[in-house]
Structure formats: C-alpha cells, structure tokens
C-alpha cells in the first residue's frame, strides 16, 4: 500500500486545494525550490509561476500581502518557514489579520492560511528555531489554529484550513515530517473544530495536540500493561475548540492530563485545565495535571533537551501519580 509522509501530506493538501480552486496561491521564502522542509516540491511546475511566488526574507510583507490578497478575493497560503519567525510579523497576524474583519464591522473576509514548521521534538534546533507557539495565537480572538498530529490529519486539516473563510494558522511539527502512514484514498477534508479520539479508555483522559498525541498514545500503551486504561484525545484545532469532546471524555474517566509541548508557564493546556475545573468539576476524581515543556528558553545539547522535552515516560509517570487519587471513592451521580 502506498505510504504518505507528514511532509508529503502538506504537499498533497496544497496540490489538492490548488487543483480544486484557482484562487489558491502560495507565497513564501524559497518555496519554488520546494522549501526548506520540502513541502512545496514541484508545485510551481504543476500550477505555474503565477500561483507559486518566492519572496524576499520579509515576513511582514509575506503575511501582510497574504492578507491584502485575501481581501481582494484570493485564497493565499503563506509559508512562515519556522513558526519562531511569527515574532517578526506578529503585528500583521494579531493586529491586522485577526482584527480587521471585526473592526470593519464585517466588511472584509480573510480566507487565508499561514503555515510552517513548528515545534521542538528534541531536534537540536534550540531557542530560536525550536519553539511550539500555538499558544501565542490562542490568546488572540479572530485566529483559527490547527496543529495536525499525523499525515492523514495533515491533509484533511490543511485542506479545511484553505477552504475556510477565516484566517487559519496551521502548525506543522518539524519532528513529524518523516512520519509515515498508509496513504488515504481520494479527496481529504477534516472539519475544523472536531477533536478525534485517538484511543479509547476509561480511567484517564489524555489530551494532546500535534506531536504530543503520539506521545500520549505511547504512554497509553505502557499504562495498559499496568492495568490503566487511558483515553487519548487529539484536539486537532485549538480554535475552534472541541470543548465538548474533552468534557465528554472527562465525564467518562474522571481524570484529566493535558499534554502540551510549549513551556507550561502559560500554555494552551492551562485553558483546557480551566475548562475542566469550571465545567467538569463534579466529574473530576483527581486534580488535573499538565505535562508541558520546560520553562526555560530551549537548549540544544541532547542531555539538556531531554530534561525539558515532553515524553511518553513523563506522561506515564504523571498518570501514575494521578491514579493515587483513585483511592478516593468514585463519585456518585
């Protein structure tokens, strides 16, 4: 059976949507040569130079031009090579893209996608090329956020992002680009805002996003050997957030562990934990635990990376600690 890598899933989604809709145009640095992560290989030959545009190193111009083109009726997909670089064009993202529809009273529509490599994954990229930054975007109303965990998820979610009428930031985890899966058949589309149950379980809910979903699945496999049944939820998108999927699962298991790669001091996991505290308190049999990246600018040497990175072992350990609260009597409905 044909296999699909996460890297080629990006390419497949772009090609699928460019084929479907001639308003889809790409811009970014080095993308006609295939891009640094080889996610745009061959698109210029297939769709022509009027649809795939190389830019100078000008993130504000790239992201701002995507916005202008979206206002004028195109559906641009801009590559921000490393998501750390959002910091140099963050004004365009949060002050212009996120707000212009609202502050014009709905006069403009911004169907655009910003995509690029994100995440740590202990790859030696360090502090300025290794951050997970979905949480930066999550505190800004007006932005949708997708962060796919697998190749199949990537094709469907990126396609949905491109078809969406609103701005969507799609985060590609750079440590997942080489991950393979059997290639799905036919057109792919996964609606934004619907979480996925990656593994069913009854004792504890593990909520992950992007690379941490696979870590949660590996932790769940280990926990199963010790008699703990963990359910794994892949949020897929932070905005729109499938809060009901989380609350529903917690209603079943009574325990929640949220696993995020970004530093925990203000990660998206805090919002999920607060959601459970506010809306599922009666279901909880134990405190909510967050497993997150270390609260330091990230290091490079492997031994140092290992301390701050999330891992299946840390997740399993957190769950085992949590299960000690199981001594409390099960709640009565």
């Amino acid at each position: 059976m044909a296999e699909l890598t996460y890297r080629n899933a990006v390419l497949a989604a772009l090609a699928q949507e460019m084929e479907r809709d001639e308003r889809v145009v790409l811009l970014g640095e080095d993308i006609t040569s295939g891009g640094v992560f080889k996610t745009t290989v061959g698109l210029v030959d297939r769709f022509g130079a009027h649809r795939v545009w190389d830019t100078p190193i000008s993130e504000q111009a790239i992201v701002g031009a995507a916005m202008g083109a979206a206002m004028a009726g195109l559906r641009p997909v801009a590559e921000v090579m490393f998501s750390d670089f959002y910091a140099v064009c963050w004004d365009q993202v949060v002050n212009e893209i996120a707000k212009t529809r609202y502050m014009t009273g709905g006069q403009v529509t911004l169907p655009l996608v910003l995509r690029g490599a994100n995440g740590f994954g202990s790859l030696g990229f360090g502090s300025q090329h290794g951050q997970s930054v979905e949480n930066w975007a999550m505190c800004v109303p007006g932005l949708k956020i997708a962060s796919p965990a697998t190749p199949v998820e990537m094709v469907g979610l990126l396609a949905a992002a491109i078809r969406d009428e609103d701005p969507v930031l799609v985060f590609e985890h750079k440590a997942l680009y080489g991950v393979k899966q059997p290639a799905p058949e036919g057109e792919q589309f996964i609606p934004l805002g619907q979480a996925r149950v990656a593994r069913e379980g009854t004792d504890v809910t593990l909520v992950g996003l992007s690379i941490t979903v696979g870590m949660c699945e590996r932790a769940a496999a280990v926990l199963a050997d010790t008699g703990i049944s963990a359910e794994v939820i892949d949020l897929r998108t932070l905005v729109p957030l499938d809060a009901q999927a989380v609350l529903g699962s917690v209603g079943k298991t009574g325990r929640l562990v949220v696993v995020e790669e970004n530093p925990g001091q203000l990660g998206w996991g805090a919002a999920i934990a607060a959601l459970a505290a506010e809306e599922a308190f009666d279901d909880l049999r134990a405190p909510v635990i967050r497993v997150s990246g270390g609260n330091v600018p990230w290091p490079v040497a492997r031994e140092l990376e290992a301390v701050v990175d999330v891992s299946p072992e840390r997740i399993a350990w957190a769950v085992q600690t949590l299960m000690k609260h199981a001594a409390a009597p099960p709640r009565q409905h």
Partner: peptide, 23 residues
Amino acid sequence: YGSYAIVGAHLPIAVGLAWASRI
C-alpha cells in the same frame, strides 16, 4: 480598504491588494 492604526502596517497589506490585481 481600511484605516490602520499600527504605523506602517498597512503597506504590506496594500502590496497584497496589488498582488491580487496582478494575478
């Protein structure tokens, strides 16, 4: 297509409008 209050921010957006017209 709008009045923007972050100094200079709308110049890239204007470029995008013009880019769309060219495409």
